[in-house]
């Protein structure tokens, strides 16, 4: 199984979009998050707590703009594993799955989440042997739950 590498226009598209997103996020941090969430009062003999947040967000902003310009000006010869559409679909799918997993973890608990999660991901990644899927998806989470209970004395929710 080999992953095809993508470069040229695909990489440029990914870099420009990533650069725009990063520049926008860091700008939001500089203009809204840091002024609203970090006290600018200075302790005598010290610098304000905003110095490093502003500095790091500012550097990210400048570098993100630099990334956009670099990508527009010339081809860096970078190779990326998947095309831009797959990046978007993978990240959106993973974000949605994260939401569902968190909701299930908080409401249904560890075992009720882990058993179907293991089974679904095994099938999703190409597992076709029903017996192995069933055994692993039931026994492994159960082992983890029992291990947490009896080795560490912790009840997983």
């Amino acid at each position: 199984m080999k992953t095809a590498l993508h470069k040229g226009a695909e990489t440029r598209r990914i870099n420009v979009v990533a650069g725009i997103l990063l520049a926008a996020t860091s700008l939001a941090c500089i203009l809204w998050l840091i002024p609203g969430q970090v006290s600018s009062e200075t302790t005598p003999g010290d610098l304000p707590p905003t110095v490093i947040p502003y500095l790091s967000a500012g550097v990210v902003f400048l570098l993100a703009v630099g990334l956009i310009l670099q990508t527009l000006v010339r081809d860096t010869g970078e190779e990326l594993p998947v095309p831009s559409k797959s990046v978007l679909s993978d990240v959106l799918f993973a974000s949605a799955a994260t939401g569902v997993i968190l909701l299930a973890f908080y409401t249904a608990g560890f075992l009720a989440l882990a058993i179907p999660l293991t089974a679904v991901t095994m099938v999703f990644s190409g597992g076709r042997n029903r017996l192995v899927v069933a055994l692993v998806s039931v026994l492994f989470p159960l082992m983890v739950w029992l291990g947490a209970r009896f080795i560490f004395g912790v009840y997983l929710p």
Partner: peptide
């Protein structure tokens, strides 16, 4: 096979971070 090995790691990560 990877399809049998990787999914249980998801469970292990959740338990490992919660513990």
């Amino acid at each position: 096979p990877k399809w049998a090995v990787l999914p249980p790691i998801l469970t292990l990560c959740i338990a490992g971070v919660y513990l």
